[in-house]
């Protein structure tokens, strides 16, 4: 246990205690959905390949390609070594009658024991936690996205990257404090070009002056300014600033709105701001604190919405404590569970 005084000062170790977790789609973060099926022991091991072939012909288990047909028996004292899936309960007219003659058409089914009901995963697992839960029910195949696995462990960003992320979010926090001093909501944001690690803009909430000038909207306009556009005046606010776009090298692409840029924002964006980021083609979003009406994880996941023409990655929890302290007068939302 650390001495009390050290923690009061906010030691470096304390500052670094945040973890950036990915905000995945509902499909990726949902619980494992199960579907009921009939299985039976294989009492004659030598008949296995024949039984599997014939069962595949009768019940191909369409849509359940991720489920392995045969599993090894889990109980060590089991009299039979293998069990095989016969069919789904929904495949048969009378699922109450779990006998071989009721479930299977006439044929040579000797080698199968008494059928029983099991629950198998209805969908292919998309993440390692889903895979691990699914496999406890019935052996399942898994095409792993290594990046997602590492991200879910909170280990996607190495120490150097974390130090940079820390700096970027710290400038958003500083902007949020400046906003609070002006009587605006304490929300700040920074837009960064991840290619060059250059801060493109820093902005903060100004809804005391304009109800729609949330920090994200301010930053989007500041990016437009940096590209020679924009439609609001920002010079009255010292903490809202942008770096003009560097002259592009011969043949270099002129940046198009926010595409390829990262946004660091102290509080999860509302639905207006989240959709503004879709329209602006933002690359990735990092936020510190969740918000009750937040649209990048809490209430909606605009960044994973299938019907929209642009999707992006979102990470929550960067400099979490500092970001939550900014809005500590408001409600705190409960931590969303990793799998739910």
């Amino acid at each position: 246990m650390e001495p009390e005084t050290k923690r009061w000062k906010g030691s470096k170790c304390d500052d670094d205690s945040w973890v950036a977790f990915p905000v995945l789609s509902d499909e990726q973060s949902a619980d494992v959905e199960l579907v009921e099926a009939f299985a039976a022991p294989i009492v004659n091991r030598k008949a296995t390949s024949r039984l599997v072939r014939e069962l595949n012909g009768v019940y191909p288990l369409t849509g359940l390609q991720h489920v392995k047909r045969v599993r090894a028996c889990r109980a060590e004292d089991s009299p039979h070594p293998l069990e095989v899936l016969l069919c789904l309960l929904s495949d048969v007219p009378n699922p109450a009658d779990a006998s071989i003659p009721s479930l299977l058409p006439a044929g040579s089914w000797e080698g199968l024991g008494e059928p029983f009901v099991v629950k198998v995963p209805a969908r292919p697992p998309l993440t390692r936690p889903q895979f691990e839960l699914a496999s406890r029910r019935w052996p399942t195949t898994f095409h792993e996205d290594k990046q997602v696995t590492v991200a879910l462990r909170g280990e996607l960003f190495g120490p150097q990257q974390r130090a940079l992320m820390h700096t970027f979010m710290a400038s958003a926090v500083a902007a949020a404090r400046a906003a609070a001093q002006l009587g605006m909501e304490a929300v700040g944001a920074a837009v960064v070009d991840p290619e060059t690690q250059r801060v493109v803009t820093v902005g903060h909430d100004r809804r005391g002056e304009h109800p729609l000038q949330h920090a994200v909207m301010v930053c989007i306009d500041l990016v437009a300014r940096s590209q020679g556009g924009g439609c609001y005046r920002h010079d009255r606010y010292a903490a809202c600033r942008f770096a003009p776009t560097d002259p592009q090298p011969e043949g270099g692409a002129v940046p198009y709105i926010c595409s390829g840029y990262d946004l660091y924002v102290t509080r999860e964006p509302c639905v207006m701001c989240a959709m503004a980021l879709v329209h602006s083609r933002i690359g990735r979003v990092f936020y510190g604190a969740a918000a009750a009406d937040g649209a990048l994880g809490t209430r909606f996941k605009i960044h994973t919405q299938k019907d929209l023409n642009h999707r992006f990655q979102v990470y929550r929890g960067v400099l979490k404590r500092q970001c939550e302290d900014l809005s500590s007068r408001g409600r705190k939302t409960p931590e969303p569970p990793l799998l739910g």
Binding site: M217, I220, D221, A224, Q227, C258, H279, S280
Partner: peptide, 10 residues
């Protein structure tokens, strides 16, 4: 006014 402002929220 998206094109002239380079701001996709306009």
């Amino acid at each position: 006014e998206v094109n002239e402002t380079k701001n996709a929220t306009r």
